[in-house]
């Protein structure tokens, strides 16, 4: 299986999903007008990954901004990690937010409330 690598743009995040190590990264900003289209490729990739996952899967979310159009897509991404966890795999989601950015901290907490997958919320000092 090929890694999924997407370079960032002004409205879309950097994506690096590595099937060899199980370490996934989503970073930058996510404010596209049509998020569904953008996130579909990630969801498709994760569907395939779920067939042969690594022993440990780690998703690192380091978002600066995201719009409400992306918020549901992000939940869908988290749900696929949720399912991987439910299937008995070792999975962790790490949500990073910049120091004092309460909006991003709350957003992480909101997602964490809606999921059963281990979800860590980490403050990054500047």
């Amino acid at each position: 299986m090929e890694p999924l690598i997407i370079e960032p743009s002004n409205t879309t995040p950097k994506v690096k999903f590595d099937p060899a190590t199980g370490v996934m990264l989503l970073s930058g900003r996510s404010t596209p007008e049509n998020s569904v289209e953008f996130y579909k490729q990630m969801l498709d990739w994760l569907d395939e990954y779920a067939g042969r996952p690594c022993q440990r899967t780690e998703l690192n979310i380091k978002l600066e901004y995201f719009n409400t159009s992306s918020s549901k897509c992000l939940l869908d991404i988290f749900k696929s990690f949720n399912n991987l966890h439910k299937a008995g795999n070792d999975v962790i989601v790490k949500w990073y937010y910049e120091e004092e950015d309460e909006d991003m901290q709350e957003a992480g907490e909101d997602y964490s409330d809606l999921l059963n997958v281990p979800f860590e919320i980490i403050e990054v000092k500047e």
């Binding site: 049509n34 998020s35 409400t68 918020s71 809606l114």
Partner: peptide, 22 residues
């Protein structure tokens, strides 16, 4: 916050993605 989470978690989300969360 609760309203936001409720709508976010609702399967009947609009295809455009906004779904009233804006």
């Amino acid at each position: 916050r609760e309203l936001y989470k409720k709508i976010l978690n609702n399967e009947q989300f609009s295809a455009k993605g906004g779904g009233g969360l804006g």
